[in-house]
Simulated scan of single mutants.
Amino acid sequence: MKLRSLLFVPADSDRKFAKADACGADALIIDLEDSVAPGRKSFARDAVKDRVSGAHDWTFLVRINPLETGLALEDLAAVVRPGLDGIVIPKVNGYQDVERISRHIDDLEAATGVAAGHVKLLVVATETPAAMLGLAGYATSRATPASRLVAMTWGAEDLSAALGALTNKEPNGEWTFPYQLARAQCLFAAGAAGVVALETLYADYRDQDGLAENCRIARRDGFVGRLAIHPDQVAIINACFTPPEADLAHARRVVAAFAGQPDAGTVGIDGKMYDRPHLVAAKRTLASVGE
């Protein structure tokens, strides 16, 4: 599952869905949560049912409503069917919420003829204060072969609202310290869980230079893709999170060198020594393009 660019699309908008369909995103997140008014939730679920079984060349994800709303299980019952690739879970309070959702999907896959374990889970992991205190729990998913979890991302808006913050940004546009911490902790939790970390939204979709620089920083820090709120952001995100061919070629050489010396702790390439952390990084680089 390639996850460089993941574009949010309101589930109840045919116009926005049509535009998103051809924008080149790796995944569309058909949204049943924030972008859908309370009175249109049922209509939005029906729209997802109609779309999920259609032909598409991107990963089909659905963001359900939070468990606390009482709508999440209805959402799952409506959308878990052939054609769905994954569920985005918002406002989780910890890994126990992920396990609860996963158990419901087990039953729904069996009931709808979806292959067991096909529907993957992506988590917005920092949207509540309780979530911030429970991030260490995601490390347990690494030891669970049946875990559906494939990616973690973070968010600041719901968290800042829950904390009563006056703002989550400095005057220069940088995140204030609590939200820098949320970002970093999400990155660490994803690493502990053995899943990919995705950078959060860049709100000003007209600022393409700012988006590109922000993506560069995210990739430097270890994020492998990011969320998008507008189709115009997708091409920039894809370009920024696709490694240059020179980096891919070097990564292949590192992997090949270790494969040729499976008992070696270090290998030499062009007069330089490479050890196991370099092998891990090389494999991650190749995995980002599906190799």
Results as ranks from 00 to 15, higher is better:
279 L>D: 12
286 L>P: 01
116 A>M: 07
1 M>T: 13
234 V>P: 04
174 E>G: 09
267 V>S: 03
254 V>Q: 01
230 H>L: 12
64 I>E: 00
198 L>V: 12
132 M>P: 07
216 R>V: 13
85 D>T: 08
280 V>F: 10
106 D>L: 04
134 G>K: 13
175 W>R: 07
82 P>N: 09
1 M>C: 10
67 L>T: 03
153 T>Q: 05
97 D>N: 05
111 A>W: 01
119 V>S: 02
186 C>Q: 03
55 A>M: 13
102 S>T: 08
230 H>N: 15
168 N>T: 06
239 A>E: 14
176 T>P: 07
5 S>W: 12
221 D>K: 09
106 D>N: 10
274 Y>W: 12
17 F>Y: 14
193 A>I: 02
107 D>P: 01
64 I>W: 00
185 Q>Y: 13
60 F>A: 08
65 N>I: 00
113 G>K: 04
27 A>V: 02
237 I>C: 08
248 L>P: 02
120 K>N: 02
5 S>V: 11
195 V>C: 05
13 S>Q: 02
159 L>I: 07
217 I>Y: 09
238 N>V: 06
169 K>D: 09
166 L>M: 13
70 G>F: 06
199 E>K: 02
98 V>P: 06
70 G>Q: 04
164 G>S: 08
225 G>R: 06
136 A>Y: 14
263 D>P: 03
67 L>C: 10
186 C>S: 08
291 E>K: 05
135 L>M: 07
27 A>P: 01
63 R>K: 09
73 L>K: 01
291 E>V: 01
215 C>Q: 03
175 W>N: 07
250 H>S: 03
15 R>K: 15
169 K>S: 13
75 D>H: 01
3 L>I: 02
244 P>A: 04
154 W>Y: 15
247 D>E: 15
46 D>L: 11
169 K>W: 11
193 A>W: 02
143 A>G: 13
2 K>C: 13
280 V>G: 11
155 G>W: 03
31 D>Q: 05
37 A>T: 10
221 D>Q: 15
227 L>I: 11
204 D>R: 11
263 D>M: 12
51 R>V: 06
153 T>R: 04
170 E>A: 15
137 G>Y: 00
144 T>I: 11
196 V>R: 03
224 V>D: 07
